[in-house]
Amino acid sequence: MKNKIINLFENKTIIQNQGIKYAQLLEQFIEPFANEFQDSEYMEDILEFAINAWNLGNMKALLPEGESDASINSIREKDINVDLLSRMIDYKIEKFKEYSNFIVDYELKETSRDHVLSVITQPEDAYLSTMFNTMDEEFSEEDFEENLINRSAIILKPLQPFFDWCSNLYPDEIDDMKETNMYLISEDIEDVEGWLKKKFDKLFMLELEAWHTNKKEWPQKRNYKMFKQWFQVDISTMIFDLEKEPVSKY
């Protein structure tokens, strides 16, 4: 994924933990708010929330007063803890203002003892230039074919190890285990394999929880190799909605 990010920006302004250790800064940034994330099951969700707060803090420090508040207000209707986000943004400006690089990617590696975090950052001038160029290149709605959804899909088909685990718990429901689940992701994710290597355990846990909520009886030492052994992964980049009624989330 790191190489993918570097190629994406096509310049040499990406900094991979050289000099200032932004991974350590990010951990220090999150620490005072740790209790706020007690309901979060996935470390990736916490990191992505904190990275958004970090980058929005950088933006707020650059923008005229009031403009950044308008940006935050625009996301109030989304499923986001805006109060926590606002407090973290202010904390970023108060305690970490001199660290002005934007965090553009991260990697969380699991070791035998702990998780090791590394981040990739970009100086503000290069980040803003890339952001504005991307905005100029975005397609308008008219550029999309009718009914084509701006998502890609990951389809997980359970394989024999998953069936074996389920059948030990629910031997009478083997036929229902053959159903597949689909997960929609951003169409902008070009390296889906790299995305899966980061997010596989979240999908793994969702699949396990759909059948059995007692986490103590889940396979404990899950890794990407095991994920690929338990599920056949199919990718679809063309998703069409043939219905007139808007899609709803529940």
Rank of each mutant, 00 (worst) to 15 (best):
239 I>N: 06
182 M>Y: 09
11 N>G: 14
202 K>H: 11
188 D>T: 09
229 Q>W: 09
30 I>F: 00
133 N>R: 13
231 F>W: 02
17 N>R: 09
105 D>S: 10
213 T>I: 12
243 E>A: 15
113 R>K: 15
48 E>N: 09
211 W>F: 10
89 I>Y: 01
11 N>Q: 10
162 F>C: 03
29 F>G: 00
198 K>Y: 08
126 A>E: 04
126 A>R: 02
75 I>S: 07
135 M>T: 07
7 N>H: 11
18 Q>I: 13
43 M>F: 13
9 F>A: 07
129 S>T: 08
211 W>V: 07
120 I>K: 04
149 I>R: 07
116 V>I: 13
88 M>K: 02
215 K>A: 12
90 D>S: 14
164 D>Q: 13
19 G>K: 10
224 Y>A: 05
119 V>C: 03
206 L>P: 01
62 L>G: 12
176 D>A: 14
126 A>C: 10
222 R>Y: 04
233 V>E: 01
208 L>R: 02
196 L>A: 07
184 L>K: 05
244 K>N: 15
41 E>P: 01
32 P>H: 07
15 I>A: 06
215 K>G: 10
204 F>N: 01
246 P>I: 06
175 D>R: 14
195 W>G: 03
140 S>W: 05
154 I>C: 05
115 H>M: 11
120 I>G: 03
121 T>F: 01
103 I>Y: 02
155 I>M: 09
88 M>P: 00
81 N>G: 10
186 S>H: 07
76 R>V: 13
127 Y>N: 02
187 E>D: 09
31 E>W: 03
108 L>K: 06
72 I>E: 00
156 L>V: 04
36 E>P: 00
232 Q>A: 15
102 F>Q: 00
231 F>L: 05
174 I>N: 12
89 I>P: 00
179 E>L: 11
197 K>C: 11
5 I>F: 06
112 S>P: 06
214 N>R: 13
121 T>R: 00
130 T>I: 10
49 F>T: 00
169 L>I: 09
117 L>C: 07
51 I>A: 06
74 S>G: 15
238 M>W: 14
32 P>C: 06
153 A>L: 07
66 G>L: 04
149 I>H: 05
50 A>N: 01
51 I>V: 10
41 E>R: 13
220 Q>E: 08
176 D>Q: 15
201 D>H: 12
26 L>P: 00
171 P>N: 05
231 F>G: 00
58 N>F: 04
136 D>M: 07
103 I>Q: 00
55 N>K: 08
52 N>G: 11
137 E>V: 01
172 D>W: 11
123 P>A: 06
145 E>G: 09
90 D>C: 08
141 E>A: 14
203 L>C: 04
40 S>E: 13
236 S>I: 07
199 K>N: 12
196 L>S: 04
138 E>D: 13
125 D>I: 12
135 M>E: 10
89 I>A: 02
